[in-house]
Design a protein around this nucleic acid. Structure first.
Lengths: 203, 203
DNA sequence: CCGAAAACTGTACTGCCGGTACAGGAGGGA
DNA sequence: TCCCTCCTGTACCGGCAGTACAGTTTTCGG
């Protein structure tokens, strides 16, 4: 890795932690450069303004997020042949991963952007939208595979069902932060898992 | 209403809309006083700093939120004698109310505070926590009534089940904002409603 | 209708922050 | 050697939160 890339990554690491705990407006560039050990000029060499930082941060976050889902549901798919069992195992693994974080989920950047909505330009909102659509596609694919084998007890729209996964995760993050109960998110995922389990019966 | 109270409410109205669309950091006092038609001194006469504004905003939001839930689930309770049917009707009414908002849900202040977490003092975080606990108590009460009459097909923790309502609402707000699909939240509530319907069978 | 309190206005200032501008320097690779 | 990447240093601008405080108008009870 070139030295410039290294510095960039260090800035992004510091910025991500700060933004997730204080929001974008609450994170000052002065603070970031102090913690990174860089000068203001150095910062603006890497990111020409705060919006560019936001964009880089969001893109990196989404990439990482997708990698984690790939790993978890990929592993679940290897261990279980049945699509329903595999999905249920994936949710279990995800819940365990989140339960092991001592301070709970650090927060989702997609949600941060949603909350600050009008403070960012169209491009960032588009990246955010694409991230949510990627989640939808991922889980819709899984539910379609499940529905090829199992009959749902209730007729539900596949997209809406797929969005429910993201909904529970995002909502779980918010609620467990509000309650200051770090395990809340993992528990909510398991409640949702019970619902999914209940929804499908063999064809 | 005294004149001072009137001005205070006007400031809060303007501030709430601004904060929900741009976040706290993105909302400047100068902007608020311009839109309210008041001077800076006038603003600081009512709120001694931005934190006090946040507190007043949050308290008012929560109060209003609870009033809406009281109305909706109160009406549902009057129309249906059975606790499950009443709860399901409540969710339906809530979903319809939200589907009628042309731009979707304006955003939840509780979530805004969660995202900005470290930017606010302990007191505000405590108010936020109390709001989430109030939601939990409200829905737990309903589920307990339901469980007195119906047998759940799966054994679920009542608190976790109650939190699922808040989770779906908060998550639904985030996801429908990210997707820029205003009806998303209403749909997610209906998906959750299907799950609840499926969960209980007569004793 | 008077007086006091409430509800402001006006002005001037501080310090932080985002951002700009630009000159210059260290270090490494071709 | 020279250029390019990756910075540092300095100086500055305008916006914003917040302070201070003196003065003015509005309201409302007695």
């Amino acid at each position: 890795m070139r030295k410039g890339e290294e510095t960039r990554v260090r800035i992004l690491d510091v910025a991500e932690a700060a933004v997730l705990s204080k929001g974008f407006g609450g994170t000052s560039i002065d603070e970031l450069i102090a913690e990174t050990g860089i000068t203001k000029s150095g910062f603006f060499y890497h990111f020409h303004d705060k919006n560019e930082l936001a964009k880089a941060l969001l893109e990196r976050y989404i990439e990482n997020d997708n990698r984690i889902y790939d790993e978890i549901f990929g592993r679940a798919r290897e261990l279980m042949d049945d699509p329903l069992q595999s999905f249920l195992l994936g949710l279990k693994l995800l819940s365990e991963l989140l339960a092991d974080l001592p301070n709970g989920h650090p927060g989702c950047l997609v949600a941060v952007i949603c909350v600050h909505e009008r403070a960012f330009d169209r491009e960032i909102q588009e990246i955010n939208r694409e991230a949510a659509l990627t989640w939808r596609r991922r889980f819709r694919g899984m539910f379609e595979e499940i529905m090829a084998v199992y009959e749902p007890r209730v007729d539900l729209d596949v997209d809406q069902l797929a969005d429910m996964v993201s909904t529970v995760i995002e909502g779980g993050i918010v609620i467990s932060k509000a309650l200051r109960e770090p395990t809340g998110l993992a528990e909510q995922i398991l409640v949702f898992r019970s619902f999914v389990k209940m929804l499908f019966k063999p064809k």
